[in-house]
Amino acid sequence: MGNVITIDGPSGAGKSTVSRILAEEIGYCCLDTGAMYRAVALVAKRKGVAFDDGRALEEICSSLQLRFEAEEEGTPRLFLGEEDITALIRNHEFDMLSSKVSSVKEVRESMKILQRKMSLHENFVVEGRDMGTVVFPLAETKFFLTASLDARALRRYEERIVKGELVEIGGVRAELEKRDYQDETRSLAPLKPAEDAVIIDSTGLTIQQVVKRMMEYMASFTKAQK
């Protein structure tokens, strides 16, 4: 297996952007596992499959043809077969639907196998909610990126306003709070920091400051290993 750095955390903490920039800085590939669950939810919705139907969702997972294509700037694009689904799955509907399918045992097991296979021959920065606790428990470097609910709500609100959505920050905050509850209380792979994860609170920090802290930690860890 290649080297793996895990970044877990709740919605709106900045995982995707931080993971992409960190990967660029150290020459690793970036694996957005949350996007993979969104892809499962998209296919399930299109096929009319119930989001708690483990057997049907497992069949979807087994036939998924997913690939990421790196962009010079911005989030790596995700393709389902030949269809670019990057924009389709980046909205609050799939925020919630991905949480539903990710709580299904058959889906998590299928995704765990796929994610581990993808990391066999490349070095990856992987982001998600159970990367350090379940999928890559032996990763040497693990981060848990969090932020206050208000800070995360403001970030998501601003993102959606830029996209032209008519939303109120109170509604965005309520959606995040609901997603947090779903992720933290599910019986299967709940959202929590790995015991050996470095916890970084990004409230009040810029993306660059978060990445700098991670780089500093990795440099100190490498030095201590010598």
Rank of each mutant, 00 (worst) to 15 (best):
D8Y: 05
Y181F: 14
D95Q: 14
V101C: 04
I5L: 06
Y217I: 08
K163V: 00
F94R: 01
I7Y: 00
F94D: 01
K212S: 12
V162Q: 13
L154S: 12
T6S: 04
G171E: 06
F68V: 09
H121G: 08
Q115K: 03
T133S: 09
Y28V: 01
I85G: 02
V210Q: 05
A44E: 00
E175S: 09
K178R: 14
R173N: 07
D183G: 07
V4K: 02
A44S: 09
E72C: 03
A139S: 15
K163N: 01
K45F: 01
P190C: 06
V40H: 06
T206Y: 05
E175G: 06
T33K: 08
N3R: 14
R55L: 13
S19W: 10
H121R: 14
L22D: 07
K15C: 04
M131N: 03
F51K: 11
T133Y: 02
H92S: 15
E58A: 15
E71K: 13
R20Q: 13
F79R: 07
S119F: 03
S16Y: 03
A197K: 05
S103G: 07
D53V: 03
A194N: 10
E158Q: 12
G164D: 06
R67M: 12
T17C: 08
G204V: 08
E58V: 09
A153C: 07
G170F: 03
L166R: 12
L57K: 07
K112T: 15
T222R: 11
L138R: 13
L31M: 15
V4R: 00
E175T: 10
R55C: 13
L120Y: 10
